[in-house]
């Protein structure tokens, strides 16, 4: 589904502190599978996810999504693809403070201009499925870590994406919560979604739902299985 060929990414290009975070990545991500990226801190996992998830453009190399070359698309069109194809769960969840959980879930759909009532209904449905129904009207900043993550997952799913990308999803959770998260991942996989995660946690890499594990170091893939 997603093909990367020779993807490189530089930061602060042309300046003294120029840094190549990715130094030529070739990768294939299959549809409907769960892939985990692991490697030491600073090895470029997050950077790679931003390339795959259309959050940023590679400095050179090709990214193909379903045979379409998206590596030289302008931001405007990347956003378009991103919001219809990808859902994101961030490491520190990144909910908007001061608004309720359900509103947080709805935010990604605002620019799409769908019907407001239907959207609210869908958001509640998602929260119910993640057992967050009773907390739907709570302010985002009052939620516990696990609750916040489930709200973040609901937000990632609101536009019904084919691919869910999660960066360090279990870093802020205890092991029971992590296991619960993996259950949700399994459910998303059953729905036919492709899941990409990064993790330091061996528990995640060894989990039953995971199909592929990609190991990175210093901006290159050292092992893929």
């Amino acid at each position: 589904m997603i093909h990367l060929t020779g993807v490189k990414k530089a930061f602060n290009q042309g300046r003294a502190n120029e840094f190549w975070a990715l130094k030529g990545i070739d990768l294939h991500v299959a549809q409907g599978k769960v892939t985990v990226f692991r490697g030491p801190s600073g090895s470029g996992k997050t950077t790679l996810l931003t390339m795959v998830g259309c959050l940023a453009r590679p400095t050179s190399g090709r990214v193909k999504l379903k045979e379409r070359d998206i590596s030289s698309l302008p931001e405007r069109f990347l956003t378009d693809i991103r919001r219809s194809t990808f859902g994101f769960v961030f490491q520190n969840f990144n909910l908007l403070k001061g608004i309720t959980a359900v509103e947080n879930v709805m935010v990604p759909a605002y620019p799409l201009g769908g019907d407001h009532g239907a959207l609210r209904h869908r958001a509640h449905e998602l929260l119910d499925r993640l057992e967050m129904g009773p907390k739907a009207k709570s302010m985002a900043e009052w939620l516990s870590g696990g609750e916040a993550q489930r709200v973040a997952i609901a937000r990632a799913l609101i536009n019904d994406p084919q691919v869910v990308i999660a960066d360090e999803p279990t870093a802020n959770l205890d092991s029971a919560r992590s296991a619960q998260f993996l259950d949700i991942v399994a459910e998303m996989k059953r729905d036919g979604r492709t899941i990409l995660m990064t993790s330091h946690d061996p528990l995640v890499a060894e989990a039953g739902v995971v199909d592929h594990v990609v190991t990175m170091r210093d901006g290159v893939v050292v092992e893929a299985r």
């Binding site: 530089a10 290009q13 453009r57 590679p58 590596s71 030289s72 302008p74």
Partner: peptide
């Protein structure tokens, strides 16, 4: 030059 992934191009786009 859209094919160029450099930051200068990105700044121009923005």
């Amino acid at each position: 030059n859209l094919a160029d992934g450099s930051e200068a191009q990105l700044r121009m786009e923005r």
